[in-house]
């Protein structure tokens, strides 16, 4: 029987369909034919927490699309899905999902800080000698970070993969306040890609500081694939990108 597991973030939903068939794709297509642009990210074997092997399909779709699908989920985490869980299923909060996902993905938890940067928040968990040690979650002053970068890149037609590191930073983590500074910078003839890179530097610095300045950071979330961000973060600490499915993997 098909099971559906979801990490429903503010902008993007990460969904695992546990099935050999790809029924879920046809469900999405029945709602939105444009889904063809959001291909299955991976079809492969996964391992659950008891090390049992199963086959699944991994999807990455906008949360606005996920919200319209006529399905309920077996296990879920994230802001957008609390009321769409099957009877007998369960909801896990994001920090716990991050911690369980990290336990699965990070081999050596001797001294590990795992940080997830979402569209609108920032959270981290620290393990020492394999045991939980500390955590924090900032959803107000660290808000609208990833979403701001997405919006700016679209608005100024900047390819996020072609932004270069800037040593100067816009020292604000809140996207709402940063937007004003970035636009101010651009109005003074700073190229948009440079202004965005300065903001990325601000986010990188504040992320490192918020996570209590670790020497090494395991990074979770969409920023793992933003080269400018990860390289900027390396100015402060070693960085190990874990990808954007860490919370999802904490659910099975």
């Amino acid at each position: 029987m098909t099971k559906l597991i979801i990490d429903a973030g503010t902008s993007w939903s990460k969904i695992l369909e546990i099935s050999c068939k790809a029924d879920f794709k046809s469900i999405i297509l029945s709602v939105n034919k444009d889904f063809q642009q959001y291909q299955i990210q991976e079809s492969k074997f996964f391992y659950d927490k008891d090390n049992k092997k199963f086959f699944g399909n991994l999807f990455l779709i906008p949360s606005t699309l996920a919200a319209t699908l006529p399905v309920e989920f077996d296990n879920a985490t994230g802001h957008m899905v609390k009321k769409r869980i099957k009877s007998g299923g369960y909801y896990e909060n994001e920090v716990i999902s991050l911690a369980y996902g990290a336990k699965k993905l990070v081999k050596n938890l001797k001294d590990a800080t795992i940080v997830d940067i979402g569209s609108r928040d920032l959270k981290w968990v620290q393990f020492i000698d394999g045991k939980y040690k500390d955590l924090d979650w900032n959803s107000s002053c660290g808000s609208v970070t990833g979403a701001t970068v997405d919006m700016l890149c679209k608005f100024y037609n900047v390819d996020p993969n072609k932004i270069s590191i800037q040593t100067e930073k816009i020292p604000l983590v809140c996207g709402v306040f940063a937007m004003e500074k970035i636009m101010d910078d651009i109005s003074k003839n700073t190229p948009a890609d440079i202004a965005i890179a300065k903001y990325l530097h601000g986010i990188a610095y504040n992320t490192w500081k918020f996570a209590k300045k670790p020497q090494k950071m395991y990074l979770s979330g969409g920023f793992c694939s933003n080269n400018c961000f990860t390289e900027t973060l390396k100015l402060y600490c070693d960085v190990v990108p874990l990808g954007r499915y860490v919370l999802l993997k904490g659910l099975f």
């Binding site: 909060n93 920090v95 716990i96 959270k123 955590l135």
Partner: peptide, 8 residues
């Protein structure tokens, strides 16, 4: 997020 921190 405050509630989730306590729970975690």
């Amino acid at each position: 997020s405050v509630k989730a921190k306590i729970e975690a």
